[in-house]
Amino acid sequence: MNGMSRIVKTIASITFPLVMIYGLYIIAHGHLTPGGGFQGGAVVASGCAMILIAYGSVWTLGKIKEKNLSILESVGAICFITLAILGLGFGTVFFKNFLIGSEIIFGIIPSFGSTISNINTAGVIPLMNFAVGLKVIAGLFGIVLIMAYASTRRDKY
């Protein structure tokens, strides 16, 4: 796959920042509105897949290597497990929400019932959303990139 025509490349370049902003919004507001790490990560990864289709897999693999994507995914997984183990250290059990009720960050408890959304709530859940989002972005885009590259190498079949 050597990339598509100039029209497709232009439209993909214009649309790509909007898709990225929307996906990062879904990740960052995962504890307030419908969404979260997995869904926003899937949105961002599909935006990256659009760039991959428009420009071709050889060009994309020249921009970002698969090894860097593996490192990014490992960083996301390590952040997630570290947050879970910190719950064991500061709190009582594994996956303890230790930031809730504290004064550091994300510590406010909302009142019961229908409330106006406040982003400074929910303890470690936004941080876990970011970690899982990073992991899903790197994982899905790595899968798509490596499969596209492998199916363009040998055209004789």
């Binding site: 996956f95 303890g123 859940i125």
Partner: peptide, 29 residues
């Protein structure tokens, strides 16, 4: 809302009440 501070019930289940489930899912990915 009282225990996890989250306005989104699904996220509170995914990341707090059933965190081990999400850990296994991340391992599978």
């Amino acid at each position: 809302q009282i225990e996890t501070g989250t306005n989104n019930g699904v996220t509170s289940v995914v990341f707090d009440y059933r965190g081990f489930d999400t850990l296994g899912e991340a391992t599978i990915l």
